[in-house]
Design a protein around this nucleic acid. Structure first.
Lengths: 276, 276
DNA sequence: AGGATTTTGGAATATTTGTTCCACAGGGTC
DNA sequence: GACCCTGTGGAACAAATATTCCAAAATCCT
C-alpha cells in the first residue's frame, strides 16, 4: 500500500509512537498555553481521531489557535494533518480504497501484476479485519455445536462454494463425518438431514436462495445451524443458531476469500480436534 | 464528556447496539442505493467515527446524498448526528492489528481463537511471499495463453479443488467459456479437450495423479497448459507450457490458500479483461 | 402503454471546521 | 520608563464537509 500522503514534512512524526516521543521530548520549557495543550493531548491521545480543534481547545482550556500552533510545534502542518495520522492509525490502510479502484480502471488497464498487488492488499486487509472483529463467543459456540453433532452438512453455493468444499476437505481429512452439499443432479437433499446432525451454511450477498432454503429446512427439522456470512443483517441469521460473520474486503467484483477461508479452516480444525 | 445533545428525535437510536438492530430490521425491501449504504455501514460500523460522508459514500459506491438519506432513514437527522453517536462511543480498544493478534494467540493453544490467529498469520505471510516472489513474465504469458484460447479447462482436485472452483466461478462471471473438471461420475473427460482450448491445472504436493494425467493428456493433444503449483520442481512442470508457482505457508497440516487464491483470481480477472 | 410514485444524482447552498494573521499583553532588559 | 521579544486571543478568512432540493430516471401500478 503506497503512501497516499506524499508530501510529508521532514521531521513530521509518522506513527503514534513517534508523536508520543516527541511529546515527551518537547514537554519542558514550554510556554503556558502550549504546555496546557501538551498535557491535554498527552492524556487524550486516543480521542484526537474523533475530535475537532474546538473540542481539544475546550478540553485544554486554550483558544483554538493555540492548538494549531501546538500541532505545528510537533512537526505537523496543522491539526488536520495530525488528525489524519490518528485516523489512519486506527486501522491501517483504509481510505483511498475507492480511489485505487478508480486508478486501476483508468490506468494502464490493470496489468496482471497490478491486479495481483490489489488482491494481495485486499486479502491482507481482510485478514486484519478478521483479527479485529472476530466474535470469540460465537466461534466457541460454533465449535461446540459442530463437535457435538452427528454428521455435519456443509452447504455453500456460488462464491461460497470454494469455502464449503475446502471445509469439507479438511473435515474429511480430520475424519469428521461431513457431507458437502452441492447442486449436482439437482437432488432434493433435505431428507438427508437426520436428527442430531448439524448444518454449516455459508453464503454472502447476494445470498443464494438454495443455501437459505436448505438452512431453513435444517432449522425446521430441529438441526443446529451454524451460519457463516458477511453481516449480522444477513438473511441467514433467521435460520442460524450461531452466526459467524467475516467481512471480506473485495476488490472489484470479486472477494479474496482469505479471511473467510482462514476462519473456516480454523473452525474445521478446532472441530476436528474437539471430536477426538 | 457529558451529553450535551438534548433534543433527540423520537425514534433516533441512542446506542451503537440500537443502530445495529435498526440496521438489521431495516435491511430488507430497501432500494438499491440505500441497501448499498446499509451493507457498507454494517460492515464498517467501526469506521464511522473517523470517516466523512464522502468517505462512506465512496466506500459504498453511492453519492453522498444517498448516505445522508440513509442516515435519516435510520432515524438520525443527518450524518453528523449519527457520527456524534459513534464518536461518543469511540474508544479505540487499540484495534492495532499486531496487538489484537497477540490477544487472539494468548488463548490456550489449541483454542479456536488461537487457531484463527495462526491461520491469519499464515495467510498474511503467504501473501507477502507471493508479493515478493511472483514471476511477472510467467504471469503475463499465462494471461496471454488463456486469453487466446477457446474453452479453458480448469482442473484441480483435493486441496486444489477450492481454488479451481473459485477460478471457474470467476471466469464464468466474466463470461469466459470455462469448464471445471471435477471427478463427479468418474467420467473420462479427456475427449472434451478440443484443439484451440487451453488447460489450467492446479496441484500441490502430494500431487494428484488425476490432475497430472489430465494435464499430460491435454499437452499430448496439443493444448496449451498453464500450471499453478507449489514449486518449479513439481511434476506438473513436465506438462505445463507456463508454470506459476506460489508458496503457501501452512499451519499444521492445512494451508491457508490465501496466496493461491489471490493469484488465481488475479489471473482470472486479467484473462477476463483481456478477452473483451 | 401511460400515469403515478419512488428513487437517484448532482449542483447549489449552508454549516462547520481549520488556519492565518495581526494587534496587543506581559515580562524581561537596559 | 521605553524598548524589545515572545506569547496570546480572537476576528477574518479559507477550506472542508454536510445538507437540501429539484430535475431526471427508474420503477411500479393499473
Amino acid at each position: 500500500m503506497p503512501n497516499d500522503h506524499p508530501p510529508a514534512n521532514p521531521g513530521e512524526p509518522t506513527t503514534v509512537e513517534a508523536v508520543r516521543e516527541r511529546l515527551v521530548a518537547v514537554t519542558g520549557g514550554l510556554p503556558k498555553r502550549l504546555r496546557q495543550c501538551a498535557d491535554y493531548v498527552a492524556q487524550n491521545l486516543d480521542r484526537i481521531a474523533v475530535s475537532t480543534v474546538a473540542d481539544i481547545a475546550a478540553g485544554a482550556d486554550v483558544p483554538p489557535s493555540a492548538v494549531i500552533r501546538f500541532c505545528q510545534l510537533l512537526g505537523f502542518s496543522g491539526y488536520s494533518d495530525m488528525q489524519r495520522l490518528f485516523r489512519d492509525a486506527y486501522s491501517p490502510g483504509w481510505p483511498n480504497y475507492a480511489t485505487r479502484l478508480e486508478n486501476l480502471k483508468s490506468g494502464p488497464s490493470g496489468s496482471p501484476r497490478a491486479m495481483v498487488a490489489e488482491f494481495i492488499e485486499a486479502g491482507r486487509m481482510s485478514l486484519e479485519k478478521l483479527a479485529q472483529s472476530l466474535d470469540d463467543a460465537a466461534l466457541e459456540q460454533a465449535v461446540a455445536t459442530l463437535a457435538g453433532a452427528g454428521t455435519i452438512h456443509v452447504v455453500g453455493f456460488r462464491r461460497a462454494y470454494p469455502v464449503a468444499s475446502y471445509l469439507a476437505y479438511v473435515l474429511a481429512k480430520m475424519e469428521v463425518p461431513a457431507i458437502l452439499h452441492h447442486g449436482a443432479g439437482h437432488l432434493d437433499q433435505r431428507f438427508a438431514l437426520r436428527p442430531g446432525d448439524a448444518m454449516l451454511a455459508i453464503t454472502f450477498a447476494p445470498y443464494s436462495d438454495e443455501t437459505l432454503a436448505l438452512a431453513a429446512a435444517a432449522r425446521a427439522a430441529g438441526l443446529a445451524v451454524v451460519g457463516l456470512t458477511d453481516t449480522a443483517a444477513s438473511p441467514l441469521s433467521r435460520s442460524a443458531n450461531t452466526l459467524l460473520t467475516v467481512t471480506e474486503v473485495d476488490f472489484g467484483a470479486f472477494r479474496s476469500l482469505s479471511a473467510t477461508i482462514a476462519l473456516a479452516i480454523s473452525l474445521a480444525v478446532a472441530v476436528g480436534t474437539a471430536r477426538r
